[in-house]
Design a protein around this nucleic acid. Structure first.
Lengths: 154, 154
DNA sequence: CACATATTGACAACATAAATGTCAATATGA
DNA sequence: TCATATTGACATTTATGTTGTCAATATGTG
């Protein structure tokens, strides 16, 4: 029982550390973007396109879990900087497929590579198995938090 | 080398999962606040006062790592709901000590207890040692991200 | 103890991320 | 073909902060 309480306490604290973690990470990412001309939200668009290939604005919105209207804004910024280009969409004629341009592809690859070098450096003294464990715990937590399981407890 | 890459990749993804984790957690917390009359930011004030005892507005701002002007706003809301009360501060006469009222104390205790029951439920099938590992990894990450170490890599 | 400096609370302006509402144009599918 | 849905564009609103400023008051040092 004591151990159970300890675990819950630690899990509770872990969950509340997600905000400091996110803030520290985003601050760092922002600094890494200095000089690239990218904003954090433009970077998000490029990253998704790089990871999943071209997509429509509503597609990207679904992946980012934010409203398409806001994504449209983000995407338009990347379009006007020639980081992406709208190509005719065979599946839907008014919804263009947004694709990375060569310029956009190179930029996001540079940015991600630089970020990964930093992460490699920061993770040097963390055990690989521990990282895997942490990752699993976090993924499980997200899943549980998003499900409505346990709602009756409230 | 392969393992190092794998670890870095996983660490990178773990870091980027901090936002989904935080969002899922805060959405859930918000739902838990339904019917209490509390907002998330009022809850934050009460939680700090409950955990650390009474404090001045600038103290709370330091703990939350946000500007005192915004914390003032948050605190004023709790004051006007009689969840907290300003008491003369022996150490500084214009800066009142903000303390929980009985009403505030009972409310935050209820809220936290309910949240912990939910966390206990969600963590039931997660190993205690894994939680401890995840917690350590996350704390280490936050520390590394906040330090300027590795800046030269950028 | 006087005086320069800091702290506090209050208020206003601004920034950013995002949600929400609406519309016209166009697609899609029964 | 015609009802319904999707998309992009645009406007408004909300939440969560930051930044700047001010007057009142404290604090601490010579």
């Amino acid at each position: 029982m004591y151990i159970v309480m300890e675990k819950t306490e630690q899990l509770y604290r872990l969950i509340w550390m997600s905000r400091p973690l996110m803030q520290a990470a985003e601050t760092r990412v922002e600094r890494g973007l200095d000089g690239t001309g990218l904003t954090v939200r433009m970077r998000a668009v490029l990253e998704i396109l790089h990871a999943h290939g071209s997509a429509t604005v509503p597609d990207i919105a679904m992946k980012l879990e934010i409203k398409r209207q806001y994504v449209q804004l983000m995407v338009n910024e990347t379009l006007s900087e020639d980081l992406t280009i709208g190509r005719p969409n065979p599946r839907h004629k008014t919804s263009t497929m947004i694709a990375l341009t060569e310029k956009g592809r190179r930029l996001i690859e540079d940015v991600v590579a630089r970020e990964k070098r930093l992460v490699a450096f920061m993770g040097a003294e963390i055990d690989a198995a521990d990282v895997a464990t942490a990752f699993d715990v976090v993924m499980t937590l997200i899943e549980k938090l998003k499900s409505h399981e346990g709602e009756y407890l409230e």
